[in-house]
Amino acid sequence: MPPSLPMNLPRGRDEQWLSVTKPTATTRFFRTFLPWQLLRFVIINLKMMRIISMGHHPKHAVAPAPKRALDPASRSS
């Protein structure tokens, strides 16, 4: 079994490491906590099934392609 994450690596050079969000011990615990992960397994599968069902087109009919909006300024980002 792998040892815990290498949190003791030298950090002196790591402005990169210091400037980012990192998970708390609780968050890391729950990532492999079996009862919680069993529940997440069911929930993630349901979410994925929903996405899969949205990706398939049950109707055998081609909808017309949406017309191009000519005004690029209408884009918000």
């Binding site: 729950f30 492999t32 919680w36 992960q37 993630i44 929903r50 949205m54």
Partner: peptide, 20 residues
């Protein structure tokens, strides 16, 4: 055009990391 803020439907865009 459909999702002006982020380009995607945030109700269907999801991510998490874990053993599951």
């Amino acid at each position: 055009e459909k999702f002006p803020a982020y380009g995607r439907d945030l109700n269907q865009t999801f991510g998490e990391i874990g053993l599951a």
